[in-house]
Amino acid sequence: MDATVRVQTAPFDVSEELAALIAGRTDIGGIGCFVGTVRDHAGGRPIRAMSLEHYPAMTERAMRQIAEQARARWSLLGCALIHRVGELRPGEAIVLVLAASAHRQAALDATSFLIDWLKTGAPFWKKEVFLDGESAWVAARADDEQAAARWLGP
């Protein structure tokens, strides 16, 4: 399975990434797609920007491991994990997950698995910058841990 894994500051183009995943193949029956975007508020406070940092030497390796786990669970024909870093504005896309399979259920389930694990298993950290100039690191959410953990159950 081909896995596209990228960390970048520049925006990504969803249709370009879809086209790259499909290019030259006719065995794919469906592609799941998740795009995470920056909300304009956090805890009732308006935000001006979201700043993302990561651990460059580790990030791509962690993302490849996550893709490998998805490949081991589902019959995937390809996937893409693209994560942006740097300062992003509300409405901008942060993360893209694509998962291709011969059948829709595997594609959709793998997409859900990949974003759940990307949130809990890849070294990225978000900081919210509020309209008044204050900023705060986003705390890890217990329900994100639970969302990732549900894939471990029977």
Binding site: G36, L52, H54, Y55, A57, M58, R61, H83, I94, V95, I115, L118, K119, T120, G121, A122, P123, F124, W125, K126, W137, V138, A139, A140, R141, D144
Partner: peptide, 26 residues
């Protein structure tokens, strides 16, 4: 050395050890 490690993980000369809060990507 770029792999998640618990408190009891061994460390040795030359290792790269990173400390950070729980991750919040995605």
């Amino acid at each position: 050395n770029q792999a998640f490690a618990g408190p009891q993980a061994p460390i040795a000369a030359g290792d790269e050890v990173a400390f950070f809060p729980p991750v919040t990507g995605g």
